[in-house]
Computed example of a mutant assay.
Amino acid sequence: MLALSEAPAVGSETSTPWTNAQATPLVEIRSVSKQYGDFTAIGDLSLKIYPGEFFALLGPSGCGKSTLLRMLAGFETPTAGEILLNGEDMVPMPPEKRPVNMMFQSYALFPHLTLEQNIAFGLKRMKLPKGEIDSRVEEMLQLVQMTTQAKRKPHQISGGQRQRIALARSLARRPKMLLLDEPMGALDKKLRRETQLELMDIQHRLGTTFVIVTHDQEEAMTVASRIAIMDHGKLMQVAPPIDTYETPASRYVAEFVGDTNIFTGSVTAAGSSALDFTLEVSGQSLNALPQPGIAAPDARYLNVRPEKMAVSKDRVDDGSNYLRGRIDEVAYLGNLSTYYVDVGLDQRVLVQMTNSQRFGSERFAEDDNVWVSWYPQDGQLLDR
Rank of each mutant, 00 (worst) to 15 (best):
T14C: 10
V304R: 07
D188G: 11
I294W: 09
I229R: 09
D181L: 11
R136I: 12
G59Q: 03
K48H: 08
R205Y: 06
H204P: 10
Q156F: 13
T24Q: 14
L171H: 03
I119G: 02
K234H: 10
L350E: 09
N118I: 08
G52D: 02
D318K: 12
K65A: 07
Q117C: 03
Y339F: 15
D367L: 13
D188Y: 14
Q237R: 14
T264M: 01
N20D: 15
Q145V: 14
L141E: 13
L171V: 03
P240Y: 05
G62V: 07
L68E: 09
Q237D: 10
P129R: 09
L58R: 09
G379H: 00
S272M: 12
W374I: 10
Y339D: 11
P8R: 12
I29P: 03
M103I: 01
T148H: 14
I229L: 15
Y36F: 04
L47V: 14
M184G: 00
E139S: 13
E139V: 03
H112K: 06
I42H: 00
F75R: 09
R193W: 04
L72F: 02
W18N: 08
S320C: 05
G360V: 13
Q156C: 11
I29W: 02
P17Y: 05
D44G: 10
I49P: 00
L381G: 10
Q203F: 13
S15A: 14
V330K: 07
R358M: 13
T14A: 12
L45M: 01
T208N: 09
Q352W: 01
D342L: 09
G185E: 04
S15W: 13
S61N: 14
D318I: 13
M146T: 09
D181A: 13
R136D: 03
S15Q: 12
S170Q: 05
R348E: 08
R363C: 04
E218L: 14
M140E: 15
E13T: 15
T40P: 00
T264E: 06
G185W: 05
A168F: 00
S266R: 06
P92Y: 11
T268G: 10
